[in-house]
Nucleic acid binder design. Structure first.
Length: 477
RNA sequence: GGCGGCAUAGCCAAGUGGUUAAGGCGACGGUCUGCAAAACCGUUAUGCGGCAGUUCGAAUCUGCCUGCCGCCUCCA
């Protein structure tokens, strides 16, 4: 049984999908005006992990994540970069895919873009106008907050409390300071589309409503995003969508905490951002994911390079275990008896892992189970009489399953894809075998100076040698 | 000002009423090794920001205090 913390109710609730066996998820994607930073990445990795776990549990997941490619920030940035908003959005959309792929984030089923859903947006606004929830004024269209009684139910505040912060910007035609724009009249040089209210473009919040309703329908299961979207973005989405459809918009609202840098929020306006591509140049994706999933998604996560260094070592521990297990399976004779105790601990680890993820996607706890598995496996493969092949393969299945959920390492054919010793059929591999053979001869002669020189030399070019009683093991780092 | 969150070992971080407070990184000692590496074993929080209180029993609940942060305006 999965329990999730729902921002809407402020409590953990049992998760029951609207349709049995099928889960519909919408996550607010990037506004494509810049490369994504680690804070953005946290959201995408978190919801990727949620999706992976739901699939692990046997649900068919429909996962939608939008690109906001029509927006004030894009227009502004395009002007600065001396390009068009469209070209700018294209550039950063491509960059998003590179970064997200680099983080081993699975692809969404659909990535709807605002610029391709203008008709749906206009349709939704027309419904709101017809229903008396919105009004046109001077080429703009505004949502009338006071007409929607439930306004504030997500962020937990009443319209009267919000009045103090609300303002009418110069040039706006709001009747009430709380109202927000659904449609903005075009200004010279800005992207624009024809509409019943004249040429213009959508406001910020309406696109997510229009696209979520188009691809998922009303009453879908999960809507996610960063905690800073609770207000006003998600509050407004609920108001628009529920006013227009008369139905529940999303059933469970999930919000992840921020990444901070020296306890301060990482944000573009503060200027303390670390871009995903910069981080991935220095650290493997496995370490970045380990870092991001090592803290519960709703807690703040402080970033510092040394935390990533620690995660690099943790990821190495995982990959070393994978290598040892692969080796042990290859060496084990088929058949054989025993290993019952090991099998028992495997099933108890799986149960613990599921319990952790069932508890509001507690990836930190799940990770502890992953490391417990590593210790069990390492001990077992080094035992005087290791478990039989069949049992080792069960351990590998569990290792792969944990990896599949957490996405630490990329997968190939259901197994983690971890760089390890090549077979010796490629040139580098054969060369390495030769060097290792020469070193072994030196070792037999007890010529430790030569042996150590070779080992150190290889280490400098990224090849680590490990002498074991059964021969030499090498791996790339 | 309004609303919300956080404070657990050297560092990161689970744990939200009940056996010896997960896990990772680091450090130290040991086993193995020619030496390493990897791996394993052991040690590293009689205590969970402080003070009261509730309870047979609290890191976990209540109150107060202290410190930090976020949202209320673009932001994942």
């Amino acid at each position: 049984m999965i329990e999730v913390y729902n921002t809407l109710t402020g409590s953990k609730e049992r998760f029951v999908p609207a349709e049995p066996g099928r889960v519909r998820v919408y996550v607010c994607g990037p506004t494509t005006y810049n490369y994504i930073h680690l804070g953005n990445a946290r959201t995408f990795v978190i919801f990727d992990t949620v999706r992976r776990y739901l699939e692990y549990c046997g649900f068919k997941v429909v996962f939608i994540q939008n690109f906001t490619d029509v927006d004030d920030k894009i227009i502004k940035r395009a002007a600065e970069e001396n390009t068009t908003p469209h070209a700018l959005a294209q550039k950063y959309t491509r960059a998003y895919y590179e970064d997200a792929d680099g983080l081993n984030v699975l692809r969404a089923d659909v990535y709807p873009r605002v610029s391709e859903h203008i008709a749906e947006i206009i349709g939704l606004i027309e419904t709101l106008v017809a229903g008396g929830f919105a009004y046109a004024a001077g080429g703009d269209v505004y949502f009338s907050v006071r007409r929607y009684p439930d306004y504030g139910k997500l962020s937990g505040r009443s319209p009267d409390e919000m009045l103090s912060g609300a303002r009418v910007e110069p040039g706006e035609n709001k009747r009430d300071p709380l109202d927000f724009a659904l449609w903005k009249a075009a200004k010279p040089g800005e992207p624009k589309w024809p509409s019943p209210w004249g040429e213009g473009r959508p406001g910020w919040h309406i696109e997510c409503s229009a696209m979520a309703l188009k691809y998922l329908g009303a009453d879908f299961d999960f809507h996610g995003g960063g905690a800073d979207l609770i207000f006003p973005h998600h509050e407004n989405e609920i108001a628009q969508s529920e006013a227009a459809t008369g139905k529940t918009f999303a059933r469970y609202w999930l919000h992840n905490g921020f990444i901070t840098v020296r306890q301060e929020k990482m944000s573009k306006s503060i200027g303390n951002v670390f871009l995903v591509r910069e981080v991935l140049e220095r650290y493997p994706a496995s370490a970045v994911r380990l870092f991001l999933l090592g803290t519960h998604y709703r807690s703040p996560l402080d970033y510092a390079p040394e935390y990533l260094e620690a995660a690099v070592r943790g990821a190495e521990r995982l990959s070393n275990c994978f290598g040892l297990l692969t080796e042990a399976i290859a060496k084990a004779a088929s058949g054989g008896e025993g290993g019952d105790i090991f099998t028992d601990s495997l099933s108890s680890l799986e149960a613990d892992f599921r319990a952790a993820m069932d508890d509001d996607f507690n990836s930190a706890r799940a990770l502890a189970c992953y490391f417990d598995l590593v210790r069990e496996v390492n001990t077992a493969v080094h035992a005087v009489s290791p478990p039989p092949k069949k049992v080792l393969e069960q351990a590998m299945e569990l290792f792969s399953a944990f990896n599949r959920v957490l996405g630490i390492f990329p997968e190939k054919e259901g197994k983690p894809l971890i760089m390890k010793a090549a077979g010796g059929d490629d040139f580098t591999g054969r060369l390495l075998e030769l060097i290792i053979a020469v070193r072994q001869e030196a070792r037999i002669r007890k010529d430790w100076a030569v042996a150590d020189q070779i080992r150190e030399g290889l280490k400098e070019i990224g090849i680590v040698l490990e002498d074991t009683v059964e021969g030499v093991r090498w791996k790339k780092v």
